[in-house]
């Protein structure tokens, strides 16, 4: 005998729900994921930039500490132009070379031939000058490897496209110049003359930085030189360069070059100098510029590194550049 058992499933009265999602549910999920990804993507980019900026901070910190160690050793800061003596026919070199031993690059310092006829631009110094030292390079700056071609010697002022150089984004301020103030020019921390270098004298001592080391800029960023940008990181047309010779001949922008300049104010669009803007308007002649959104980093004389916002008061910035003006530096 066969018993037919008819099992009555539970909830038999309810309509059986179909397996899987409806189109609407799927779309809702996709839309939510889309929004979340949309929220996250800029955050990821911002986090990556934050990481690069911290590395940049660290570089400036190393440079600032190296300056202190140099001062401990030689009782003065390095001279901005001549880090190493070249005898009677000097080719300008940089403070960066002078502090190499303090940056644990003694081998590079020893390998450098200071008496080469063309100094930093001499073929025999290509091994050193062509080193890409990460401590002088801000990772935020878009660069593609070494700088190809540098100015060759100061007398003929020729450009040698076959030489290479490791890039550098950090400069020291020769002065701040802006006719909106009186005096229109005040000299920067490492300059021992009135507006320039006095080679007959030793470098600046901490004791002559009477504004206080924590209120004086040692290094600032002029990132990307000689790739000249203006507002919004847009490349400048060569016809807009203020000092085309230094750009065309790659006078700066590599760590072994002189890496110092006056800082000038600019208009916000980065086209005319002597305007209301001091940070991130252009890296053209006289511009203080970084690729960090919202501001630029500086190393101060006390070894600290500060992020200066683009909206910094022009007078505060000027007071930070000056070393002995007795100006009151406000909040920054």
């Amino acid at each position: 005998m066969m018993t037919v058992v008819t099992a009555t499933p539970p909830h038999a009265g309810r309509r059986k729900s179909p397996a899987g999602f409806t189109l609407v549910e799927l779309l809702v999920v996709i839309a939510i994921i889309g929004v979340l990804v949309g929220l996250l993507l800029p955050a990821v980019q911002a986090a990556r930039e934050a990481a690069r900026r911290i590395q940049c901070t660290n570089n400036l910190k190393q440079v600032g500490l190296a300056m202190h160690n140099y001062h401990d050793t030689f009782r003065s800061l390095p001279l901005p132009d001549v880090g190493v003596s070249y005898g009677s026919a000097p080719w300008l070199s940089s403070w960066s070379l002078a502090i190499l031993p303090q940056l644990e690059q003694s081998a590079a310092f020893d390998a450098f031939e200071p008496n080469a006829p063309n100094g930093v631009s001499d073929q025999v110094n290509q091994d050193v000058v062509g080193m890409q030292l990460s401590v002088f390079r801000c990772p935020t700056t878009p660069r593609s490897g070494l700088l190809q071609g540098i100015i060759e010697d100061q007398v003929s002022a020729t450009f040698n496209p076959n030489l290479v150089a490791g890039t550098g984004d950090y400069f020291i301020a020769r002065s701040y110049r802006d006719p909106a103030f009186t005096p229109s020019e005040i000299v920067g921390a490492l300059f021992n003359g009135s507006t320039s270098v006095d080679w007959s004298q030793p470098g600046v001592r901490f004791s002559s930085i009477t504004d206080g080391l924590s209120n004086t800029i040692f290094c600032f960023e002029r990132s990307g030189f000689p790739d000249i940008r203006k507002r919004g990181n847009v490349q400048k047309d060569p016809s807009e360069y203020v000092y085309p010779f230094v750009v065309d001949n790659h006078f700066n922008g590599w760590w072994a070059s002189i890496q110092h300049d006056r800082i000038r104010s600019w208009t916000y669009d980065g086209t005319q100098y002597y305007g209301p803007c001091v940070i991130n308007c252009t890296n053209d002649w006289g511009g203080a510029y970084s690729f960090h959104p919202g501001g630029m980093q500086v190393s101060l004389g006390d070894g600290s590194v500060r992020f200066l916002g683009e909206t910094i008061d022009k007078g505060t910035f000027r007071a930070l550049v000056g070393k002995a003006e007795g100006e009151v530096v406000g909040e920054f």
Binding site: A180, Q272, Y274, K314
Partner: peptide
């Protein structure tokens, strides 16, 4: 706050 010097 600071003198503005328009230029062109």
């Amino acid at each position: 706050k600071y003198p503005l010097m328009p230029s062109g």
